[in-house]
Computed example of a mutant assay.
Amino acid sequence: MQKRITKLIAVAAMSLSVLTELALAGPLLEATKNGKPIRLGYMIAQPTSFTSQSGEPDGMINVFAINVLKKMGHSDVEGAVMDWGGLIPALQANRIDIISAGMYITKERCSSVQFSDPMLVLPDVLIVPKGNPKKLYNYQDVAMTGAVLAEPAGYAPIETAKRYGVSVENIMILPGNTQVLAALRSGRADAYATSLIEAEGLLKSSNETSMEITDPSKMPEDTKNWLALAFRKNDSDFVKAFNEAQKAYIADPKMMPDLAPYGHSKDMVPGTKTASALCQ
């Protein structure tokens, strides 16, 4: 009788443990357990995120995310392309599972998504007309000259520009990179602030020869940007496992050869910064 009671208690404890695990599991972990693919959401922005000719997610950040997910045992991955401003709403509406578009960790975004620990650190630069006629090298120059800054909706440099004194009236908000370049070409805007790697990729992919990139060393030190993958707030369990796998991938000698074709360099390795510290 005693043995039977002990066995029943053990079975009940095991059942409770399984139920507790299921209750605590976030939607992404549950989806992968049920055999569903992981959906990456991104904007077309070479070389960080784009779609290959075969229709697969490609670019530095997509390749990074896919290789980290493989270390976790997840190989079924799909991509969804959308405008920058639609990424967080799509994540919150469960239309995608991870934002893999080179999103900067900012306090404002930390209230809407849960970031992985940083995967990259990048400086900001300005894209300006060839010859830099207004002599714009940083946000302070834009503010002092009253120049017009063009930015895709939701881009972090918008808030950085405001912090350095650029008036709201002089920030032109547009849907994406195509519209920003058009504004620069037409003279409706004077500069576009973005990361160095995105600026290089954008001018190369668009065969743009009428513009140039400013020297990143002219930007203030505190405008360095920490890039990460973004997840839903209730996917903490998955993010914790992702961070562990990401550490292993960053330490893996294979990472640099994997990402070098997209412009990755050792200067972009993020060090020991954590998302929780950057969200404070």
Rank of each mutant, 00 (worst) to 15 (best):
Pro133Asp: 10
Ser205Asp: 13
Ala245Trp: 08
Asp258Tyr: 07
Ser205Ala: 15
Gln53Gly: 11
Ala101His: 01
Gly79Asn: 02
Ala101Gln: 02
Asn243Pro: 03
Leu149Ile: 09
Leu69Thr: 01
Asn62Ala: 05
Ser75Tyr: 14
Ile158Cys: 02
Ala147Asp: 02
Glu78Lys: 15
Leu136Met: 06
Gln140Pro: 00
Ala12Arg: 08
Leu24Thr: 11
Gln53Glu: 14
Arg39Glu: 12
Lys162Gln: 08
Ala31Leu: 09
Pro37Asp: 11
Val77Glu: 00
Ser167Met: 10
Ala90Val: 10
Leu181Trp: 00
Glu198Asp: 14
Thr178Cys: 04
Asp235Leu: 07
Met43Lys: 12
Thr178Arg: 11
Pro216Ser: 05
Ser15His: 13
Phe238Asp: 00
Ala189Phe: 11
Asn170Cys: 11
Asp76Gln: 15
Met82Asn: 03
Tyr42Cys: 03
Ala260Gly: 05
Thr160Gly: 06
Asp215Lys: 08
Leu29Gln: 15
Arg4Tyr: 15
Pro89Tyr: 07
Gly86Ala: 10
Ala275Gly: 03
Cys279Glu: 04
Asp222Asn: 14
Ser75Asp: 15
Ser75Ala: 15
Thr194Tyr: 04
Thr106Asp: 02
Ser54Val: 11
Ser54Trp: 09
Thr106Ile: 07
Ile96Pro: 00
Met72Tyr: 05
Arg39Asp: 12
Met72Gly: 04
Thr194Asp: 08
Ala260Phe: 09
Thr20Asn: 15
Cys279Thr: 08
Gln280Leu: 12
Gly154Cys: 01
Val121Phe: 10
Met72Asn: 03
Leu259Gly: 02
Ser111Gly: 13
Ala147Lys: 03
Leu203Met: 06
Leu181Met: 06
Glu212Val: 10
Met82Trp: 03
Ser116Asn: 12
Ala277Val: 13
Asn243Tyr: 02
Met211Thr: 10
Phe238Glu: 01
Glu244Ser: 11
Asn34Ala: 15
Pro175Trp: 01
Leu136Thr: 02
Glu208Cys: 08
Thr209Pro: 04
Gln179Cys: 09
Ile9His: 13
Leu259Ile: 09
Ser276Asn: 14
Pro118Arg: 03
Gly35Arg: 06
Ala65Thr: 15
Ser206Gly: 05
Ile61Ser: 05
Ala199Pro: 04
Gly73Asn: 10
Leu149Asn: 02
Tyr262His: 06
Gly79Phe: 05
Asn177Met: 15
Thr32Trp: 07
Pro261Asp: 06
Val168Ile: 14
Gln46Val: 15
Trp84Gln: 04
Leu120Ile: 09
Asp235Met: 09
Gly85Trp: 13
Val128Phe: 01
Pro89Met: 05
Phe231Val: 02
Asn207Gln: 12
